[in-house]
Structures are given as C-alpha cells and as structure tokens.
Design a protein around this nucleic acid. Structure first.
Length: 566
RNA sequence: UGUCCCGUGGUGUAAUUGGCAACACGUCUGAUUCUGGAUCAGAAGAGUUCAGGUUCGAAACCUGACGGGACAACCA
C-alpha cells in the first residue's frame, strides 16, 4: 500500500512528550482503570522557583488534559528544615500560576501513623530491623558503587526485639543518631539505594504540623511512594536524579499493594537556566546572607521574584511549554524565557511615556503657561485598550541620550539644528543649549511648528527621529530599578560551584532616581505592568518604603542604541 | 572499576515509531520615518558523537567504543 496521505510538512502537529506517551499508553492499556491522578510534592523548605513551575505545569497539566486530578502534597518528613512560612508561599505561588488543587491539600505528615504501622508490618515480616550502629559505620558497610556492601550485625534481630526497640525510638527513649530502622533488601545490590536503606531516624526537633508527637520520622524513600499509594496517585512524576530510587520505590509499593493498582514513577529533566542558579539551598543562603533583598528580590529565579519583576504566569507557562520534557540534561537559554515574557507583555501592556534620565527641553515659541492634551494610543496592537490624554506644555523632559551636542554618524535624534517629532505632539527644532560649569548639557532650547501637531495639517511632515517625552510641569517623579541577572557567569546554573558568590553580578541592580513619568501613572498600582515607549517593560514595585513610585524593569535591555553610535 | 540514564544546528525540542532531518529561541541582512525590545521579508547554521552491523532504506533497531550525567545524606 502506498502512502497517499498529503505531505504537509508545515502542518504543525503538536508533539507530545515521552511522559505523555506513557500516560496515553497506560490509559489505552486500561491500567488503574484508566484513571489519571498526579501530585505536586514540594518540601516546604524554601520558596518555589521557576524550576518548580516546570514540574507544576506537568503535574497539573497532565491531570487537566486527561481528565484527572492533581494533589498538592507537602513532603514534610524532615522537621529541621521545614516551616509554615514556606507552606504558605508555595500555595500562593501555585495559585498565582493558575493551578488549583481544590480540597486535595495533603501532607506526608498526614501519613505518619500509617507509615509507622507499615514499618511495624515490615518488621513482622522480617523485612526491617533496628540498627544500633553509628552513621559512619553504616556508611562504611554500605560499600561503594563499585564494592558490594556487608550486612549489619543487627540485621537478624528477632521480630520482638525490633518491635520493642522501634517502639522505644518512637517514644523518644533513645538519642538522635543512636538507632535507625532499616529495610532489609539487598546489601550486595549494584544499586546503592537497595542496600538496606534507612527508613526511619530519630529527630527530636518539633515538626511544623505534628509538633512533638513524633520522635521518629520516615525518610523520603519510605514516605514518597507510600504517600502516592495512599492517595491513589497513578503517575508520580519527578526529576531525573530519582531514577535510581525507582527500584526502591517499587519495592515498597510491592510490599504495600493489595490489588492491581500501583503508582508509577516517571522521571524527566530538571530545568537549568543559563546565568541562573536554581539550588534552593543556595538561594536560601543568598537570602540569609543579605546578598539579595529577600526571596522575592526581582533578581531571584523564584516565582515571587519573577512576579515582582513583571513576569506573568502566562509567560512562564509558555516558556515551560517551549522547553519541553525529556531525559536530556539540558541547559536552557534565559533568552527564551525573556522572549516568552516580551511576547506576552507586548500584547497586554499599555505603552506609556517615562524618561529615565531627564533633560529639560524648553520650547521658546510655545506660549508660557499654556497646557494642552495630546491623544495617544495605549496599545497599537490592541485597539480595545483605548487611548489616553497626555498633557503637553512649554517645558518637557526628554532622555539625555536623545540629545547630542555633536551628532554621531546616523544619529537621527535631537542635536543643534536638527528636527525631531515629540511623539503624539509637535515637531521641534533644536536652536541652542546651555551647559553647566561641569560642561554637562543642562537645558536645550527649541522651537516648534504649530501645524505639525499630530493629526494636524502638516502632521505628515517627515523627520528622522521620534522621541518620547514628559511634560515638565505635570511629570510624576519615580524611581526605576534596572535589574540584570544576579549571576554573570555562565556556569551551568552555578550549581556545581560551591563559591557561587564569585559569580554574583555587581551590576545586577542599578537604581535610577529622579526619573519622570507621565501623570497617568500616578495612580498605578503594585504589579501593574507597562511598556515605556522605547525603553522596555516595567512593573510597579510594591516594596517602596516611601510613597514614591518605583518601577522594576522586567527584561534587561539589549543595547540597541549602541548600534547607532558606532 | 559497578549499576542506571542520556548524546540531533550555538541553545532547547521535533521527526507520523525504519522513508527527503522540521520548529522555536538566538545570530546576521533588509524593509518599515509618530520608532517599536513591535511588525514584515530574507539568510547563515546540523546530515543526527564515532565505528561496524541489519535493511531497498537507519537519527531511530543491534554490537562496540567515545563523551556527559546520576548513585556511596540518619536531605528531598
């Protein structure tokens, strides 16, 4: 049979990830009655970053797409690292991204009782034992990836003794580190995780939810798969480093399962971004050491940091969509992320006038004391965003960069004798200028032609340049923060480098005070986003101690103007 | 000197599961004079890590190299 389907290469068929293929196959095979149930399982020991967004989009996205559900489950099995502050921020950030877990908010700590019972069950089946040895000794006996391990002398304790000791551990009869509960698997396994893994340890710090109720806490491997099982999870999606844990995950589930149902762990690649460090531990250090202003510092890759910088949930989801899920350890270019925000912000933001480094222009032949309003379009790509009136008068501010005493080659902005259009208003001509003692341009004197007003009789007169401007009399003062990347080094996320401080970018934050913005911005609210004409995207900050307006620049500006001068 | 995972333009992903290697980002040209990080038009850039094998046909399957990564926390 010949293939007579039309060959339409350009027909974009959205490809699906290998994970989705697995899920689709499982449904087709009728596994778990065709049910799809995922979970997003953060440990509440830090704020969510964009790497988590990748997992969130997958976990919630797959459930959505296949008519299933996604649980939120806090993996809170280590009380010394965890805190309610993190629980709250995590919930807020997931909601901000636009996902909802309804009432399915769970905690691994919800299952401490069940897990404890299961551990006792394993003891009774001679599949777990209490080991009295030190951590060092246990580690030594584990051997190395090349060398098989040796069995603990406590491996064959009686069931009764194990039961008693474990019960004593639970009650707090023993010191931290004095004993652990281990699963009896295989000390000679080539997989280190199968060499009698520790499943319970004694911790006497209070837990953020269960308080002092417990003195023993399950390890990740003993909690995760079981929690999945308890919740009826069908697909447990996690990152690549858990690949070697899967046999153990399956081993515990095998001990637990009583029917055909079983959760399946599938691993995908973690998100790495160029110029970005994503390690939660190191981000915590940055916060603790005061190297950033907090978890929501706009230079941070945290979701709250990106939000404060002006990123939208849509742009983040779009980015995640673009990079895909594979098993390749990829390093994604931040420029793709930046592309995603620009694409989104370009559609949704109003263009406004703001001047970062003001230079006063006095239009000598414009009547003193006169004010008029000129009409400007908010977004040329979206008429529905309407128009606004901007006041114009005799004195305006333009960008310092938009005036040159001696114009460079191909410089089409303002210079002595040159004409430019003030966007939406008039064409002006530079007649002269004034310098201060330091030799810096202080004021520029121009004349305007009344008929060249936008929409007027001579408004089609051609000039080489068009400038943004702000009425000196009406301008609102603002502070602008130019954020660059926190890290200047391209090391894959700086993740391997312990001394990440040496990669910190000293220019990651520049504060510009004395900026002038158009009056309509006076009532802008925190997190409002704008496109400053010719300057890029900005987001209103919420952290100003004074009442002044603060704008964060969302995306670092490409140096487009440098081109003109070279 | 182990086990497992992975190698496709600069980067990230595709390739109807064996049939002319495609898309996006980035880069570079040009256009666009109310200028825009927008938009439009175009270009360069991989023969799929390498070597064998199977096949009419391999990025895909097999074998072996080479390269990268994960695993020896009482972290998750």
């Amino acid at each position: 049979m010949s293939d007579d389907r039309p060959r339409e290469k350009d027909e974009l068929k959205p490809s699906i990830s290998f994970i989705e293929q697995f899920i689709a196959e499982d449904i087709k095979d009728g596994k778990n009655s065709g049910r799809i149930h995922t979970r997003f399982p953060p440990e509440p020991n830090g704020y969510l970053h964009i790497g988590h967004a990748k997992a969130i989009c997958l976990d919630f996205g797959m459930a959505q797409k296949y008519g299933g559900q996604c649980n939120l489950r806090f993996d809170d099995t280590n009380p010394v690292k965890e805190d309610v502050e993190y629980v709250d921020s995590i919930k807020e950030d997931i909601r901000w991204l636009g996902f909802d877990w309804d009432d399915r908010e769970y905690y691994a700590s919800d299952y401490f009782g069940k897990l404890f019972d299961f551990a006792n069950e394993l003891i009774k089946r001679s599949l777990a034992y209490v080991d009295d040895q030190s951590a060092e000794l246990i580690a030594t006996q584990k051997g190395s990836p090349n060398q098989p391990g040796t069995e603990s002398p406590y491996r064959n304790r009686s069931v009764k003794e194990n039961l008693d000791l474990f019960s004593g551990m639970k009650k707090g009869d023993f010191d931290e580190g004095s004993r652990v509960l281990r699963a009896k698997v295989d000390m000679t396994s080539p997989n280190m995780h199968m060499r009698d893994p520790i499943i319970y340890r004694i911790i006497k710090s209070p837990h953020h939810r269960t308080g002092d109720a417990w003195k023993v806490y399950p390890m990740y491997d003993f909690a995760h798969g079981q929690s999945d099982y308890f919740e009826g999870i069908t697909h447990s999606l996690c990152t690549l480093e858990f690949e070697v844990h899967r046999p153990l995950y399956d081993w515990f589930v095998d001990q637990l399962k009583t029917s055909d149902y079983r959760p399946r762990q599938i691993e995908f690649n973690r998100l790495n971004l160029t110029y970005t460090m994503m390690s939660k531990r190191k981000l915590l250090e940055l916060v603790r050491e005061g190297l950033v202003r907090g978890w929501d510092d706009p230079r941070m890759p945290t979701l709250c940091g990106l939000r404060r910088r002006g990123y939208t949930p849509e742009s983040i989801k779009r980015f995640v969509d673009l990079i895909g899920y594979t098993k390749v350890e990829a390093i994604n270019d931040v420029s793709l992320l930046e592309h995603a925000v620009r694409e989104d912000l370009n559609m949704r933001t109003a263009r406004v006038f703001g001047v970062l480094k003001p230079l006063k222009v006095i239009i000598k032949n414009y009547p003193e004391g006169q004010t008029e309003n000129v009409e400007l379009i908010n977004n040329p790509e979206d008429e529905s965003m309407g128009k606004r009136m901007v006041p114009f008068c005799r004195e305006v501010y333009i960008e310092q960069d938009d005036f040159m005493e001696v114009p460079a080659h191909k410089y089409f902005r303002l210079a002595p004798g040159m004409e430019v259009r003030l966007k939406g208003a008039y064409i002006i001509k530079c007649e002269s200028f004034k310098k201060n003692e330091a030799g810096l341009i202080e004021e520029v004197y121009c004349t305007y032609e009344q008929e060249t007003r936008s929409g007027g009789n001579a408004s089609d007169k051609k000039v080489k340049g068009t400038l943004h401007w702000v009425s000196a009399q009406h301008a609102v003062n603002a502070e602008v923060r130019l954020y660059d990347r926190l890290f200047s080094h391209e090391d894959p996320a700086g993740q391997k480098e312990d001394d990440y401080r040496k990669f910190l970018n000293p220019d990651s934050l520049k504060v510009l005070t004395g900026c002038k913005v158009e009056p309509s911005l006076a009532k802008a609210k925190p997190l409002d986003k704008f496109q400053f004409q010719r300057l890029g995207y900005f987001c209103v900050d919420y952290d100003s101690t004074s009442s002044k307006l603060v704008f964060n620049r969302t995306v670092s500006l490409k140096d487009t103007w440098a081109k003109v001068n070279k």
